[in-house]
Write a protein that binds this DNA or RNA. Structure first.
Lengths: 188, 188
DNA sequence: GAATAGAGTGGTTAATCACTCACTAAGCGG
DNA sequence: CCGCTTAGTGAGTGATTAACCACTCTATTC
């Protein structure tokens, strides 16, 4: 019997949390279909079977990941708004954008959103989660910034462009087209 | 021997073309990882084995689909530019946007782009294809429209927002946040 | 009317998938 | 230290996957 290191149990709450966190990274790279539960389990340091004690199935795990990602986005925007120097809508939006740029420097969040967005068209449950996420975030940005509807729309349009830039790592491409797309976007 | 309907052979060129076309639809709904070669074959009306005579492997098929999608986008923008009433950059861009809006009314093209974008981060070959696609399209829009760099950037930002709207079918959601996002975007 | 080239398939394989179950070990209250 | 609850796993399940190969059928050519 090789008992090298004694087990230290955690509460299932804690485990669920760490699994969620590592699942973000895993789903970020290969998306819903391309990610296996074994991969998530291995990265979380538990057996694949135990993933199924913490989450009813793969879909539920993915949905939890998506919702978690939106939570982080909202928190980030809130921090930005709180740090804004003035109440001028334009400036509040800029502060939010800066905070968001900081959040996505690890790019996992953005990739999860991108994969969720892509899967949304075919998977009704994912679509509902993404809709709910944007509903909250858009509503939040609008009410907190006090910006006009076109301003808010433009804010999200630039956000979406940001997703593209991160996905193809455009800012590390030395070409005119890449510079045009990523001009003025926080370093990434 | 049940020989219900006599076989009518086509050239492999033709077949490759129809497979590509149906593959667009198939990859559009479940992306690279979620789409099986059997699914593509069935929808194209051939055996799964024959897919592998027409394309070396699944990845090559997907890359061909992505490139095909970008071709269609470029053609569409070209048609828009040709139909523009004036040479005013603003108006040329608008004409291009209108043409693009028409192209994506079937939404398969957009979904392929979205899936490719999401897969780009993890798959180097996909990333290269997506970069090449945007390189061509951005360069084309810039040179043909004569618009300023910020104008071009904004053009693509709105395009990306368009992707989100289509993916989650935001225009069929009756809520303020959805209206903010899809305001002014061609019906979809 | 054979010979030949190319279109197209059935059947298989090894790997991998999501998911399950019977089980062991760990901690905690009494 | 006993009994119970909970954390956690090993060893599978059947289904599905990408890819391959040996083969048949069709059409054209000489």
């Amino acid at each position: 019997m090789t008992r090298t290191r004694p087990r230290t149990l955690s509460t299932s709450e804690e485990r669920r949390d760490t699994v969620l966190r590592t699942a973000v990274e895993t789903f970020a790279s290969r998306g819903y279909y391309g990610t296996t539960t074994t991969e998530v389990a291995t990265r979380a340091g538990i057996s694949q079977a135990y993933v199924y004690r913490l989450f009813p199935n793969k879909e539920a795990l993915f949905l939890a990941v998506v919702e978690h990602a939106f939570d982080l986005v909202r928190d980030s925007l809130a921090r930005g708004a709180a740090a804004a120097a003035s109440t001028d809508p334009e400036l509040v939006l800029r502060a939010m954008a800066d905070s968001y740029a900081e959040l996505i420097s690890d790019q996992n969040l953005i990739l999860v959103q991108l994969h969720a967005q892509a899967a949304a068209a075919a998977e009704p449950t994912v679509r509902e989660a993404v809709r709910a996420g944007y509903a909250r975030v858009v509503e939040y940005v609008r009410s907190v910034s006090g910006a006009s509807e076109p301003q808010v729309q433009n804010f999200f349009a630039v956000g979406m462009l940001c997703h593209l830039i991160v996905a193809i790592d455009a800012s590390s491409v030395d070409a005119p087209w890449a510079r045009v797309l990523s001009a003025g976007i926080k370093h990434v």
